[in-house]
Amino acid sequence: MENLAIDKTDVEALKKAWAEIQAAQPNVRIRNAAQELGVSEAELLATEVGPACVRLEATPERSWPDFLKRLPELGYVMSLTRNGACVLEHKGKFQKVETFGEGERAMATVIGPIETRVFFSAWHVGFAHQMTKGDRTLTSLQIFDKAGEAITKIYLQEKSNNDAFLKIVEDYRSDNQEPGQTVEPYSQPTFGDAIDKPAFLKEWSELKDTHDFFGMLKRHNVHRYKALEIANGTFSYPISTDNLQHVLETAASTQLPVMIFAGNRGNLQIQQGKVKTIRLLEGQEKWLNVLDPEFNMHLKLEASQTAWVVRKPTSEGNVTSIEVFDGEKNMIAQFFGLRKPGIPELEAWKQLVDSLPKL
């Protein structure tokens, strides 16, 4: 899309430009419109602050972890988490929410029909939003980071508890209900250049749990993509992204249960179970989709530049994943065979991944 470079400090001009895009492209998504206008999604959404868009904020009395704990009150909803190239959508209930840690270390796990891993350090501002599309009214709670990127969106469904929604909005309503939103870019993390490859691979070989992998990367100050390059031929190797459709179609046809992870700096959403309907949709963009009744995945194939098979030792044997990265070497999504702690990974998943040709 052409970047129209609207002055983002001029809220009225931005609001007008957003209205003009909607009139010209009724089905345009706000994320795409924001990119076209050269602003963040939160900045564009905040032009609508008023009766149909309420700014939400956390306070010491009502924190973001407490906000998450309130979501089960909504009942049946749709939870959406995305990054620049992958979207996961689940319908169901926020069933079991557990928060832990404080301040920058505050995190949470959500277990049940909707499963996520939450990192509250990135939660900056929220909005309760109502939007009419055709004959539908979409009502949502949306959380954004300080750069204005969406962390997660919760959409009410016909069976949702609207009274609970209104009470959450009332409790988290910000005193600032002026249109417009200030954003701040994140600084890019720095990584070491001189990696002790033998020491790094030795520690990799001694992993006992997949959750220890991130800590290992931090200790060696190595970017995740660089780690896969270092381990190429030992614990990792690249494959063509053309294999992703085959992997999902095979999982669907053989009823092989899988796990799919996708997220951003504030939320990681997880699919666990069988997938059924796999569709490749081609238009201006090519998307690989899972279109099941209570789970959808949308993976933008043009942005999926590289894919790697990765093996991590655990006390139950190797765990095999496929990790997908964009052109800037940011991870888009991960695919695993369904596995529970204490149980070896599925042999059918290992065989499927082993069948994929190495690059």
Rank of each mutant, 00 (worst) to 15 (best):
H90I: 01
E316I: 09
V258A: 13
L244V: 10
F94N: 05
Q181L: 12
K340V: 10
R279I: 10
G266V: 09
N162K: 14
E102T: 12
N162H: 11
E48S: 13
K312S: 10
S140W: 05
P341Q: 06
A23H: 07
Y172C: 01
F119K: 05
D242G: 10
A108H: 09
E61G: 15
A122Q: 10
Q25T: 13
I278C: 04
E282W: 01
W349N: 09
V247W: 06
I239Q: 04
W123R: 00
Y237W: 13
L352G: 03
T99W: 04
D242R: 14
S355F: 08
K167E: 15
N161R: 13
T277E: 14
K350F: 02
R31H: 11
H298E: 09
S205N: 06
P65H: 03
V222C: 07
Q269H: 15
E158Y: 09
N32L: 13
M78V: 15
N221E: 11
A194M: 13
L338Y: 12
I230A: 04
E20H: 11
R62K: 15
T241E: 04
E184K: 11
A34R: 00
E323I: 02
K286A: 13
A307V: 03
N264S: 07
N267W: 08
D326A: 12
F214H: 15
K312Y: 10
L37N: 00
L4A: 11
L141E: 05
C86I: 09
I168H: 09
K146T: 07
F335N: 08
E57K: 06
D7G: 06
H246S: 11
S63Y: 13
V11E: 05
E61R: 12
V54F: 08
I260A: 14
P60R: 13
S63T: 15
L74Q: 02
G263C: 02
Q255E: 12
R224Q: 06
G134D: 14
S321C: 06
E249F: 04
E57G: 10
P60G: 14
H223Q: 11
Q305E: 15
K208W: 01
G180E: 03
N318K: 08
K159N: 13
S253Y: 05
G92W: 04
E12C: 01
G148D: 07
E115R: 04
L268Y: 07
E184R: 08
D10W: 08
T109A: 06
Q22S: 13
G75A: 08
L80P: 01
L56W: 07
G103F: 06
F235K: 05
G215P: 04
G180S: 06
E43S: 09
K91M: 13
Q269P: 04
E323G: 02
K146A: 14
T116C: 12
T314P: 08
S40M: 06
A199K: 10
E115N: 03
D163L: 15
A17K: 01
K153V: 12
T234L: 08
L346P: 00
Q255L: 11
E20P: 01
Y155P: 10
N264K: 10
G192Y: 00
I332S: 00
P179W: 11
G180K: 00
E294Y: 07
N27T: 11
K329L: 06
I230N: 05
T210D: 05
I278M: 07
W349I: 08
E115L: 02
G180P: 05
E323L: 00
E73I: 02
K146M: 12
M216G: 02
